[in-house]
Simulated assay, not measured.
Amino acid sequence: MAQKQITPQQRAALFAQMTRQNMQPISSVAGAENSRVTLNLPQTRLLHRTRLMVQATLNVKHASATNYVPAEFAPFTLVDNIRFEMNNGFAPVTLSGRQLYLHNMMRENADVLEVKPNGRGKNVQGLVASAAGTDNVIRFHLDIPNGLNDRDAIGLILLQNRETVANIHITFADRNALVKPGQTGYTLDIKNITVTPLVESFSIPQIPEALPDLSMLKLIQATSYDQAGAGDVVIKLPVSTTYRKLLFLVEDANGGVDESFIQSDIQLIFNQADTPYSVNPYHLASINHDQYGRPLPKGCWAFDFTYQGTINYSSGRDYVDTERLTEFWLKFKAAGACKISVVYEQLSRLR
């Protein structure tokens, strides 16, 4: 007798009825500056997200100053690289700490990610210095999301089998990554670096019809581009996947640039001819403010194809499918030399 075919909507409804969310910690790992730690994810359930809490103590000493200026994007700059790896090779997520922070900002109520000098906030970096040396709390959170969003069972990773081994590798920078360059007379010491992971997963339903489609994988990657001088910037992005989000940061020698540095519309171009997006940088910054509830950091803009009145829960109407494209470009005119970092979230079907 042939097995009854069910629709994706029916499968999603069955999964919602027959699974439940789990949040479980795995052991904290001690780190050190200029070193790498590895987190081994448990081979159980369907992986949805890993929340990472990084903690450290930064002692700051200065003969006369009572505070210091943090580096741009600190404390996330303490993490030089995060790599979510499967089966000792394939890495769906490879980013720096600040790139993952920028990706995490593409959400509603992005103000919760603001770094505070003290208190119970999500992200904290103390900013006190003294002649005797003051211990400052460093605490920040970074999320590695594998699921599409908090509603749809797309992108989940089946860890409960012998074939799938998943690890997260974290490489730390040194203490100077936390402090703005050019400040003199300071003595820094960092200690007690730890990473505490919290794994969010879903239980595996008892009937096959309720198991979600596991053939879709979410990728979060980044690339960088150096522009030697004023003129057109053309960044050729990878094709053959489906783009959900595209964020880029433009920096000159002084850090993030303002809107006037971009001397043209910001364009996305398909196959060198079709330009579905051509947006003034001030307009795009305004749109991003509407979407995320706060301005993105200076020099940063995003095309968020998941937005249809709310972030991350769209029908996919505006996703950019590059499966049949030969070229996918980000293009604008820069006023001078700069470095561009591009962070993109994609969907890829396993073959």
Results as ranks from 00 to 15, higher is better:
Lys245Ser: 09
Ile193Asn: 05
Pro197Asn: 08
Thr187Ile: 08
Leu237Pro: 01
Thr242Trp: 04
Leu214Gln: 12
Ile190Thr: 07
Ala222Asp: 10
Pro181Gly: 09
Asp213Cys: 13
Tyr186Trp: 05
Gly231Arg: 04
Phe261Asn: 04
Glu251His: 04
Leu198Glu: 14
Leu219Ile: 06
Asp226Asn: 10
Glu259Thr: 13
Leu198Trp: 07
Glu259Cys: 06
Leu219His: 06
Gly255Leu: 08
Phe202Glu: 03
Gln183Glu: 08
Leu247Cys: 14
Pro205Phe: 00
Glu259Tyr: 03
Ser224Ile: 02
Tyr243Ser: 05
Tyr225Leu: 05
Thr187Phe: 03
Glu209Trp: 02
Ile235Cys: 04
Val179Glu: 02
Asn254Lys: 13
Leu249Met: 12
Pro238Trp: 14
Thr187Gln: 13
Leu178Ser: 09
Ser203Asn: 09
Glu259Lys: 07
Val234Leu: 14
Ala253Arg: 14
Val250Cys: 08
Met216Ala: 07
Asn176Val: 06
Leu211Met: 14
Ala230Gln: 12
Ala210Asp: 00
Phe261Lys: 07
Pro205Ala: 01
Asp226Met: 04
Tyr186Gly: 02
Ile235Asn: 06
Ile262Ser: 02
Leu217Arg: 03
Ile193Leu: 13
Arg244Ser: 14
Gln206His: 01
Asp232His: 02
Lys236Asp: 15
Asp226Ala: 13
Thr223Cys: 13
Glu200Thr: 10
Ser240His: 05
Ser260Gln: 13
Ala177Trp: 11
Ser215Lys: 14
Gly231Pro: 02
Asp189Trp: 01
Asn176Lys: 12
Leu219Cys: 01
Val195Arg: 11
Val239Gln: 10
Tyr243Asp: 09
Asp226Cys: 01
Leu211Asp: 00
Gly229Ile: 05
Pro208Gln: 10
Val239Thr: 15
Ile235Leu: 12
Lys180Met: 14
Thr196Ser: 14
Thr196Gly: 03
Ser203Val: 02
Leu247Val: 15
Thr194Arg: 12
Glu251Pro: 00
Lys245Asn: 11
Ser260Trp: 08
Pro197Val: 09
Ala228Pro: 15
Gln227Cys: 06
Pro208Arg: 08
Lys236Arg: 15
Glu251Tyr: 03
Val179Leu: 04
Ala253Val: 14
Leu178Pro: 01
Ser203His: 01
Val195Leu: 15
Val234Glu: 15
Ser203Ile: 03
Gly256Val: 05
Ile193Arg: 05
Leu217Trp: 01
Val239Asp: 06
Tyr225Cys: 02
Thr223Met: 15
Leu246Ala: 09
Lys191Asn: 12
Leu246Ser: 06
Val250Ile: 15
Phe202Asn: 09
Thr241Glu: 09
